[in-house]
């Protein structure tokens, strides 16, 4: 296979080079992406071994194999491993060009597989939304997984990521809210999810909405003060990339940059429970008890 079909190294693919190629034909699968033209437009990353493409490609292949019948289930498996396999800083992850590369050059097949789109009256032929290729961090096919892992992990523990990514509403609505930039808030919501205080998507959304709305007057950061994350520990974890093995059947280890103190999360949960039960949103199952 040529480098055009199977890139050896990750690179940056500028928006300007992408825009013209995400035609309806491409998004319905009728046309192929012009890989040669895209390859030409790419800008190389530094020489670090972190950017070896097979690391990521292998994970994507394994995800598509394991969850062939249930692509949505792949998120909980892939998110922590993509994060642990693609070791980078938030600064690097904020660069949309890297995610463009993953979606258009490295694994467009994954995007089609995971986000096929639904036929509608207006668009009878299903097409992949262009935002899955090139878009906001919470919609782009790969960025959403990496950021979910980054925002929902608890220090080196990826278990909360599995829980969160097992619920599509956590990924689709909660991930983009600023409230989860406060780790204790994110962990408290995940705790409520794993304790089944909230269960279905509608309940997740109601809780997130209540917390987000009350967040206009409440400083959760003052009520539940987080530890300062250890940026140096994160750096060390990035540099260890070549010495660790990526487990498929157990969770990898995340950066040991300090877990959220348990007491802080526990202190926040009653507040959220109160907001949730007192929220009078129509249509929610009133029998839900906490």
């Amino acid at each position: 296979m040529t480098d055009v079909e199977r890139p050896e190294r990750l690179a940056l693919l500028p928006d300007a080079a992408v825009a013209g190629h995400l035609t309806v034909g491409v998004r319905t699968g009728a046309e192929k992406l012009p890989q040669a033209a895209l390859a030409k437009a790419c800008l190389p990353l530094d020489a670090s071994s972190r950017w070896e493409a097979p690391r990521v490609r292998d994970l994507v292949d394994e995800a598509m194999r394991r969850f062939a019948d249930l692509p949505t289930k792949a998120d909980a498996w892939l998110a922590p491993r993509l994060h642990a396999g693609l070791r980078m800083t938030r600064r690097e992850a904020s660069d949309g060009r890297l995610w463009n590369f993953l979606a258009l050059r490295l694994a467009p097949d994954y995007v089609f597989w995971r986000h096929p789109g639904r036929p509608s009256v207006e668009k009878p032929v299903p097409e992949v939304s262009s935002g899955r290729f090139r878009g906001a961090f919470h919609t782009q096919a790969f960025a959403r997984l990496w950021w979910a892992a980054e925002l929902f992990r608890n220090g080196d523990d990826y278990e909360p990521v599995e829980v969160a990514c097992g619920n599509q509403d956590m990924l689709n609505t909660t991930l983009r809210l600023e409230i989860v930039h406060h780790r204790p808030t994110a962990q408290a919501i995940i705790q409520m999810l794993s304790r089944q205080t909230i269960r279905v998507g509608r309940e997740v959304n109601a809780l997130a909405k209540a917390v987000n709305t009350a967040g206009s007057t409440l400083m959760y950061e003052i009520i539940a003060c987080d530890e300062v994350q250890d940026a140096d520990a994160y750096r060390c974890w990035i540099e260890e990339i070549d010495t660790v093995y990526m487990p498929y059947d157990s969770l990898p280890e995340g950066p040991d940059d300090i877990r959220v103190p348990e007491a802080v999360v526990e202190a926040l949960i009653p507040t959220f429970e109160k907001l949730y039960t007192e929220a009078p949103v129509r249509g929610r199952d009133k029998r839900t008890t906490v």
Partner: peptide, 24 residues
């Protein structure tokens, strides 16, 4: 490692108001 462009800084004051803690 945590920043790339512009960070915004806002000052806030909170207090316990009508028994609700941490209100802006």
């Amino acid at each position: 490692d945590w920043h790339v462009g512009q960070a915004e800084v806002e000052g806030i004051v909170t207090a316990t108001v009508a028994d609700v803690q941490g209100r802006v």
